[in-house]
């Protein structure tokens, strides 16, 4: 079973874990590392290391989710990529976190990371587009003639 560490600016990571718990119930081996403006690079490294250890870094492997590629949480996490027991995925959103918990027994860390990436991408939609496709080439929703019956 893989562990999860969510590394983010401010309290986003903690909030994502709380949201996931609200949906799935209590979760094991999942840590949020919340970086504060005043944290030094050394302090951030220490917090990330602690998070990885607490999430089970010595066991079956750990997925680290960071909030934004190129941001400090991501940049620091990438230093731990050399280990084959750790994979980093960026752009964390709630569908990614949920996908992790559903599939955390997947043996391949790499494969798990790819599944998480796809879940994250699929989770981003503009539902209005779907409605417009369903309505076909007909009048736009909200236009006066849209619901003209006889």
């Amino acid at each position: 079973m893989k562990g999860l560490v969510i590394v983010t600016h401010s309290v986003l990571g903690k909030g994502l874990l709380m949201a996931a718990e609200a949906i799935l119930g209590p979760l094991e081996d999942a840590e949020a590392v919340c970086l504060q403006k005043e944290d030094s690079v050394g302090r951030i490294n220490h917090k990330v290391q602690e998070g990885i250890a607490a999430a089970g870094g010595k066991g079956d492997g750990v997925i680290v989710m960071a909030d934004m590629f190129g941001g400090t949480p991501c940049n620091i996490s990438l230093a731990y990529l050399q280990s084959d027991r750790l994979e980093v995925v960026t752009g964390v959103n709630l569908p990614m976190v949920l996908k992790f918990f559903q599939n955390r027994n997947e043996p391949s860390l790499r494969r798990l990371a790819e599944e998480i990436r796809e879940a994250g991408r699929e989770g981003i939609t503009v539902p209005g587009d779907l409605l417009r496709v369903k309505a076909g080439a007909g009048p736009e929703v909200g236009s006066p003639s849209a619901n003209d019956g006889e």
């Binding site: 600016h9 030094s40 690079v41 934004m68 190129g70 941001g71 400090t72 940049n75």
Partner: peptide, 12 residues
């Protein structure tokens, strides 16, 4: 900036 290129630089 001891973080060099990071979120504040890119996004702001």
């Amino acid at each position: 900036d001891d973080r060099l290129i990071h979120g504040q630089i890119l996004e702001v």
